[in-house]
Computed example of a mutant assay.
Amino acid sequence: MKKLILSAAVVFGSLSINAATVVAKTELVQSVNIQDEYTEVALDAVPAAVKSTIEKSFAGTKLEKAYKNAKNEYKLVIASGEKKYTFFTDASGNIIKK
C-alpha cells in the first residue's frame, strides 16, 4: 500500500513538472525610414526628359504632383483614373528604385 501511494505521488509530481507555463518571447522590431526632404515644385518646372519618361513608361496617366530634393531627384505622383502612383526619377528621366 505504501508503494502504491508513493508511486502515485511520483507520477503526479512528474506530471506537474511538464505543466509549467510557457513564456512566449516576442521581439520588437523598430524600423526607421530616412527620406530626403522633397519640396513641391510646379508641374512646369519638371524637366522635359522626366515628362518624356512619364509618357513612354506610363502611357495614359496624368502627372498630378511633382517634388524635388537637393540631389535633383524627382518624386512624381501620377494618376490613372482614380488610382494614384508614386515613383522617383533623376533629372535625366531615369527611374530610381526606392
Rank of each mutant, 00 (worst) to 15 (best):
L4H: 10
L6S: 12
A9P: 07
V11Q: 13
F12R: 04
G13W: 05
S16A: 09
V23L: 03
K25I: 12
V29M: 05
V29Q: 06
S31Y: 13
V32D: 08
V32T: 13
I34T: 10
I34A: 14
Q35Y: 02
E37F: 14
E37I: 14
Y38C: 01
Y38I: 03
Y38S: 03
T39Y: 11
E40Q: 08
A42H: 10
A42Q: 08
L43R: 07
D44P: 06
D44E: 11
A45L: 00
A45W: 01
P47E: 00
P47R: 00
P47K: 01
K51G: 13
S52I: 10
I54K: 05
S57Y: 05
S57K: 04
A59Y: 09
A59M: 04
G60R: 05
G60F: 00
T61M: 05
E64Q: 11
K65Q: 04
K65H: 02
A66K: 00
K68Q: 08
A70Y: 04
A70F: 08
K71S: 12
L76Y: 03
V77S: 03
V77G: 03
V77F: 01
I78N: 06
I78M: 07
E82Y: 15
E82S: 14
E82A: 15
F87K: 02
A91K: 12
I96A: 11
I96W: 05
K97Y: 15
